[in-house]
């Protein structure tokens, strides 16, 4: 193995890691506002990539440009998966939360199953080909080759992360979300509607999943079953980074992506096991995640 391999593995890792991170932000945003999350986040990603791919193909087949097709598919995905996020909150989170139960874990998984099965009815069980607006074009830097789409994903993910961060930390709305997370009752006394905030959190989470799906589609062959895999990776990222820290999640995503690709240099078959072994080690040493707040509880 030479330096080029390591370099290529790191770049690959950053590309996939940034997709994991986008998806994982969805866990973060709903967790801080409602202390719940969508365990079917991965299936929303799948939904995003399949809707994106169908729209993209339909529009390009109608003879319009790839960028029009890409932007249209992105917008449609944001709307559809965003609405799905809202519907999920209405159906699987809100009715159960009043019972102070953890039933939402099962109910979100149930919705995920339904989404997966409906996707199977629409798109079939086989994997599909998702075209990228860049086609198959490759940037050849001599020592290494990288797909333009991968560069696009890397840049796109960074921009999304930045926007999200500014939105959450700087805007009034973001502060309202955080206020609900901090103290729901006090927030509602201040005129913030916690129910509305919860709904919005799930819409944002759904949107993030959808955008993640559109970005990841051309790098994988999307099919009804890819959700489980991506959702699990993103969940791992959220835990590694510390679920209440969006910066930590971003770094955690890149870390998981890079480390699993570096492990793959030794053995492609051990890649998964090694990456999850890393997670176990991190959790054993830092149970709150790499960047989570260290809260000492006294009993």
């Amino acid at each position: 193995m030479d330096l080029t391999d390591v370099l290529k593995a790191i770049i690959n890792g950053l590309v996939y890691g940034s997709v994991y991170a986008i998806i994982a932000q969805g866990y973060y945003i709903t967790f801080i506002t409602t202390k719940t999350m969508n365990f079917g986040q991965g299936d929303f990603v799948m939904l995003g990539s399949l809707i994106g791919l169908s729209t993209f193909t339909a529009i390009t087949a109608a003879g319009m440009g790839v960028w029009i097709a890409f932007i249209a598919s992105l917008l449609l995905v944001i709307v559809v998966v965003g609405i799905s996020g809202w519907a999920l909150e209405q159906v699987a989170i809100r009715p159960l939360r009043s019972w102070h139960s953890i039933g939402w874990i099962l109910s979100t998984v149930a919705v995920a199953m339904i989404v997966r099965n409906v996707a199977m009815l629409i798109w079939g069980r086989d994997v599909l080909m998702a075209p990228s607006p860049f086609g198959r074009a490759i940037l050849d830097l001599g020592i290494l080759k990288i797909r333009y789409h991968e560069i696009f994903v890397l840049v796109g993910a960074a921009v999304i992360m930045l926007l999200l961060y500014v939105f959450l930390k700087k805007s009034l709305f973001g502060k309202a979300l955080e206020a609900v997370a901090f103290n729901k009752d006090a927030a509602s006394l201040m005129g913030i509607n916690p129910r509305l905030m919860a709904s919005i959190a799930f819409i944002i989470a759904g949107t993030l999943a959808g955008v993640g799906g559109v970005l990841v589609g051309p790098m994988v062959h999307p099919g009804a079953f890819i959700g489980l895999f991506l959702g699990l990776k993103a969940f791992a990222v959220a835990i590694i980074g510390g679920i209440e820290n969006p910066r930590g999640i971003f770094i955690g995503g890149l870390l998981l992506g890079v480390s699993e690709n570096l492990f793959a240099l030794y053995s492609t078959s051990m890649k998964e096991a090694a990456a999850f072994f890393l997670i176990l080690v991190i959790l054993a040493v830092l149970p709150q995640g790499l960047f989570g707040k260290r809260v000492k509880e006294k009993f």
């Binding site: 690959n12 996939y16 895999f229 492609t268 998964e272």
Partner: peptide
């Protein structure tokens, strides 16, 4: 070289 069938990237 062995790979998991769910593996997204066979470049390695």
């Amino acid at each position: 070289s062995a790979f998991d069938p769910k593996e997204l990237n066979l470049e390695p």
